[in-house]
Design a binder for these strands. Structure first.
Lengths: 260, 260
DNA sequence: CATCGCCGTTTCGCAACGCGAAACGAAGGG
DNA sequence: CCCTTCGTTTCGCGTTGCGAAACGGCGATG
């Protein structure tokens, strides 16, 4: 049992990262903390410089100083660092959030996301979120481009799971058809059977020059903004593909540089 | 006056980011907090997942989750995002910490640094640190490559300061000579008159394809590791220059991408 | 124009909560 | 073998943070 005030403050800081702007009421609803407590915590964080209170915008937001809370952590794979700039740039232009995910045992883990920069969205933090391989755009985009050995290895793991989102691992034919389609298209989308149903994610693999699948990068949009799924895919899949290629290119240049 | 426990916890988290591994004794010395208090704070942060306690390594360190405390902040300039991967890669290979700084009024502000990834160093956090233009490697590297108008504008500001580190702004001839040398070399070093004297920073400008000076990137090393200053510069200046060029290249590709 | 509801913020008395001196056990060093 | 120094635990005290209640402002509603 830790120090309550600190636990609460960290929870608030987490919540603040989910949206560009946060009202007391929203934070109250999400954290279940009494409003005076929130005000006190926020003022403490504001005094310390981690949070800004902009009454004109009607709410609180994280400030630049929060970056120094994690400035000492760079153990992440280089592909995430190389992809950041591209993800940010894509969100700046196309508005929709972009995420980069890496495999971890039986799931893909989101390691970077521009959700908070983007639309005011109902999503919760996607960073550190674990996504299933067989139903998620970022999962399928990775899985479908693996070589056979690695592919089978993961499917074997998934077979031992009783998560309904992994059900497809028991239907090899259907799975093969799905993966084949992803492979052909060069991109994957989220299964229409899973939540949230008002949005969709288009994912593409990031493949090194050596041919290894390193990660996946995806863009998420509200379905209501497009007439059809196809329309959105036609528009964003090429952009994602060329961003993925550019990231791979960056990585290649990085390692050549290092070798020199 | 904020909530004390939170202020303390944030201070501890800051300290944890300065070094790869932190003992209770070190934290005690730097934060002046009683050791039982530190243990309690650290256990709270550990329970929450932000900190890991590895007794084998003999200390505490920040864990991957800290990144989610700032995952909602991407307002920084793209040049910082583009430079991250290069800075990290350089530190991985050459061990020494690398920092990226941007101008802000009368100083350069460090916006990204790999200090904690690197050597166990006596430095305090360099992120958000404000460095003088005329005495620091990262300052001179930026200043010396500005066009005349921008250069004069900054010097005018510095003249109005009584900071001894800005003294050179009152000696145009000496200043011109110094800037000329930096320009010729293509890199700048920290003045030997300022602290800390046991280390040095080599800085180079990051210049956009359009010719604008965007930022500076620099590498810091302990003087004791090299026979002479020249030796270190000969070794690292070319590496920094080519990294700066590569970052500029990345930015160019990013913007072309966006235009397409 | 009065009323209502919801907002963010302030007040204030209570006691829960966090505090840290002191003690503890373990691990080197001389 | 003693002595220091480390990280951690204990525990009684009192400061500090707590949150119900109240407040003032604002926009919608009738």
């Amino acid at each position: 049992m830790g120090i309550r005030a600190i636990e609460r403050a960290m929870a608030v800081l987490q919540e603040l990262n989910l949206q560009p702007i946060n009202t007391i009421a929203q934070l109250h609803a999400r954290t279940k903390l009494p409003k005076p407590t929130l005000v006190r915590i926020l003022r403490t964080l504001e005094d310390a410089g981690y949070v800004e209170n902009d009454p004109r915008q009607g709410g609180y937001q994280v400030s630049a100083l929060v970056t120094s809370l994690s400035s000492g952590y760079h153990k992440g794979p280089l592909v995430v660092e190389a992809g950041r700039a591209w993800a940010i740039a894509m969100t700046r232009q196309h508005k929709w959030p972009v995420a980069i995910a890496l495999p971890d045992y039986d799931r893909m883990v989101v390691r970077f996301s521009t959700v908070p920069d983007s639309f005011v969205s109902p999503f919760h933090s996607t960073v550190n979120k674990r996504l299933n391989f067989l139903t998620r755009g970022l999962g399928l985009a990775y899985l479908a481009f693996l070589d056979n050995d690695e592919f089978d290895l993961i499917i074997d793991v998934l077979k031992r799971s009783d998560d309904p989102e992994n059900a497809l691992s028991h239907h090899p034919d259907e799975l093969k058809r799905l993966v084949g389609r992803v492979h052909e298209n060069g991109y994957a989308i989220r299964s229409s059977l899973v939540e949230p149903k008002n949005s969709n994610t288009i994912g593409v693999p990031i493949i090194s020059h050596g041919g290894r699948v390193l990660a996946s990068i995806g863009l998420t949009y509200f379905k209501s903004a497009f007439g059809s799924e196809q329309e959105a895919c036609d528009r964003y899949a090429p952009i994602l593909k060329s961003a993925a290629a550019a990231i791979s290119e960056d990585l290649d240049r990085l390692s050549n540089h290092l070798a020199a």
